[in-house]
Amino acid sequence: MFDFRQLRYFIAVAEELSFTRAAQRLHLSQPPLSQQIQALEQDLGVRLLERDKRNVALTPPGRLFLDQARQILALADEARSQVAEAAAGYSGHLKLAYTVSVSFHPALPQTLLRLGQNAPNVRVWLSEMYTEPQFSAIRGGQLDVGFVRDVPLHEDDARALRLDVIDREPLLLALPEGHRLAGRQSVELGEVAGDPFVVQPRELAATLYDRLVRLAAKSGFHPVIRQHAQQINGLLALVAAGMGLALIPASMQVVKIPGVNYVPLADPDAYLLLAVASDADNPSPVVLQFLDTVAEAKAALGL
């Protein structure tokens, strides 16, 4: 069976119509070139070239085979390029999830933008998912990576997952307009010990719910929960309606709802983690390329 080297030799002779010029172009002596062309013709069982001491010409089968040889080498080069891209993580598929609150943080769009520039042949499948289900989905192979808001709570998850921290995002209090603390530079959580709160149900958003409970306990009280909202952005509408206060990540300040004021908390523990979770044993080049892109986005954002 002929090989790629023989095809390249044949194309050179066919284009030069001279064994001498083809040998010079290929940087080899003429006898081995002639031997390889003869071996190719014997393998195919046809004469590809008519030659005498002065002239070389393509036979009709030779003209047909020249087109086929060029196509074969082009396909081989394309296959080589695609394999190299896949090995470097520049092509393939990536299943990515993120919590709703992450959609307000600049790290998500910046990472996706840079990934599109660095690896345009990577197809990204996006889905919204809370943090704990993301850990399970990554371990089960339904997800490749996820933007999460907490560290794994279970020991098995902690051992099996890799966590790349992007940010420790400050938490703010969302206050209704006219609240006694609206307009302050910062507040202590203990100053609102008697105020009602609006939260997401714990079964949906345990991370933020538990952070509120822990911070309140640190300040010596247990928060009074007046109302629930399914989505984090829905909390702001309840705040504007005077239903209570809400604890939110600082990136949600971009949501401008009339009747809501945002005030930072003075407690150094008042932050929400933002990290990328992946399988610690996942050797996927696409995942590694994505994690490199996350690091680039983090550095560009000064985080």
Rank of each mutant, 00 (worst) to 15 (best):
F10Y: 07
A12C: 08
A12N: 07
V13I: 07
A14S: 04
A14K: 01
A14L: 02
A14Y: 00
E16F: 07
E16R: 15
S18G: 08
F19G: 05
F19H: 01
T20H: 10
T20D: 13
T20S: 13
T20C: 06
R21W: 02
R21L: 13
A22F: 00
A23N: 01
A23M: 04
Q24F: 10
Q24L: 14
Q24K: 15
L26P: 00
L28G: 01
L28Q: 12
L28F: 03
S29E: 08
S29P: 00
S29D: 12
Q30G: 01
P31V: 10
P31M: 07
P32S: 12
P32W: 11
P32N: 10
L33C: 07
S34F: 13
Q36N: 08
Q36G: 01
I37V: 10
Q38T: 15
Q38N: 15
Q38E: 15
A39G: 11
A39S: 14
A39R: 15
A39E: 13
L40F: 11
L40W: 10
L40V: 12
Q42Y: 05
L44Y: 04
L44C: 04
R47V: 13
R47D: 02
R47F: 04
R47W: 03
L48K: 12
L48F: 09
L48P: 08
L48N: 01
L48G: 03
L48Y: 07
L49Q: 07
L49P: 02
E50L: 15
E50Q: 15
R51G: 01
R51F: 08
D52A: 12
D52C: 05
D52L: 12
K53E: 10
K53D: 08
R54E: 03
R54C: 04
N55S: 14
V56K: 06
V56R: 00
V56W: 02
A57F: 04
A57V: 07
L58A: 13
T59E: 09
P60I: 11
P60L: 09
P60T: 08
P61E: 09
G62M: 05
G62L: 06
R63V: 12
R63T: 13
R63K: 13
R63Q: 14
L64F: 06
L64Q: 11
F65V: 11
L66T: 04
L66Y: 03
